[in-house]
Amino acid sequence: MKAIALFSGGLDSTLAMKLIIDQGIDVLAVNISTGFGSTKDRLEHMQNMCNQVGAELKIIDIQSEFLQDVLFDPKHGYGKNFNPCIDCHAKMFAVAKRIMEAEGASFLISGEVMGQRPMSQNKEALQTVLNESNCDGLLLRPMSAKMLKPTIAEIEGWVDREKLEGITGRSRDRQLELAKEIGLADFESPGGGCLLTDENFGKKMFDFIKYDKFEVKDIPVMKFGRHLRLSDGAKLVVGRNKEENGYLQDIENDKFFHAKTVGIPGPHALLSKDAGDADRELATKIILSYTKADPKKVYTISYDGVEQKGSPFETREEANKFNVL
């Protein structure tokens, strides 16, 4: 017997897998990447969690499918920010069902806890996701199973319902107790996980689509730096520290110039390739304003090798007026 787990790397999905593995069922942990999961690479952490409970890990990239089918026209709308949680979950379950069929597995599991997130994990929302993904009966939620109607796996006797949990609400006490019982180490503290639920990230997304078509290659651009919208509509992204400069430097996106200071230390930046002369001059002033450059002197910024001269604003506050956030 084999099950496919929708695996986030978090405590709940790790414990859900353990509850099923302990009943003698093989579990394939599937992490479905929309591209908006995190600014950090969590592969090592996810592999560690899977190793501790005895599950195999598989990463599935659905970035293109997610943008095309879900992100910009969610049937069930957005949450507080740019987060189409119900439609996103339904898409993930539909993808997991495809994998289940391809792998010859018998059912799906997830770490969702009823009531943990009031909007996307109430009883009605949990059922909506099943209906939308055609997974009703196939998806077992081990953490809240005793509070939900029995699934095929329980009815058929593949899984003993009595050995599952009946957790509801936002308290983490029972999860922490279970983690201690099985000796689970290095698990993450609970967090949003998805960048689309973040208010500031949402503002950057709404600003981007106001001016441009959003594509898969634009996802990395959104994750790092200070985002500014210039007077004539060009987009400027300026690294805020050494780590962000490194990430921005590695981005390959033909919509943007890579901009860097010449002769003085400064941030790495990205500027829309369709920026006009006025916006390029403004970008130069802004980038220099995030250096120690003297407003009375002239400096050079290289835009993919094309040099532009300029001076910084007198104060950073003048540059900050163009911030998207």
Rank of each mutant, 00 (worst) to 15 (best):
D22P: 10
N48V: 03
I21H: 07
L28W: 15
R42N: 01
G24L: 02
L11G: 11
M46W: 11
M17Y: 05
G24F: 03
A3D: 15
F36I: 00
D22R: 12
N48H: 08
L43E: 11
V30S: 07
S33G: 13
R42L: 01
I4G: 15
I25M: 14
R42I: 00
V30H: 11
G24P: 02
T14A: 13
V30Q: 06
K18I: 07
I25Q: 15
I32S: 08
N51G: 14
A16T: 09
A3R: 11
M49G: 05
M49H: 05
S13D: 07
L28S: 13
S38V: 01
Q23N: 06
K18G: 05
I32V: 15
I32P: 03
S13Y: 15
L28F: 15
M17T: 14
G10S: 04
I21E: 12
K18L: 04
K40C: 00
L19C: 13
K18P: 09
A3P: 07
D22A: 05
G35V: 03
G35S: 10
K18D: 15
I20E: 10
S13K: 09
D12C: 06
L19V: 12
M17P: 03
A5H: 05
I20D: 09
I20C: 08
A29E: 07
L15Q: 04
F36Q: 00
L11E: 09
L6Q: 14
L11C: 04
M17Q: 14
Q47S: 12
C50G: 15
A5D: 02
C50S: 09
L43Y: 02
L28K: 15
I21P: 06
A3K: 15
S33D: 12
E44P: 01
T39V: 09
D12G: 08
K40P: 01
K18Q: 12
S33R: 08
L43S: 11
R42G: 01
M46E: 13
N51Q: 15
F7S: 03
L15I: 11
E44K: 06
N48L: 14
A5N: 10
I32T: 06
A3Q: 06
L43C: 02
A5W: 03
A29P: 11
D12V: 06
D41I: 01
R42E: 00
F36K: 00
G10K: 03
G35C: 04
N31H: 14
N51H: 12
I32D: 14
T14Y: 10
I20P: 08
Q47C: 02
L6F: 12
S38H: 06
K40H: 02
G37A: 14
V27T: 07
K18V: 09
T34E: 08
S33W: 04
D41R: 00
G35A: 03
A5P: 05
F36A: 00
Q23P: 12
S13Q: 04
G10M: 02
H45D: 09
A5K: 05
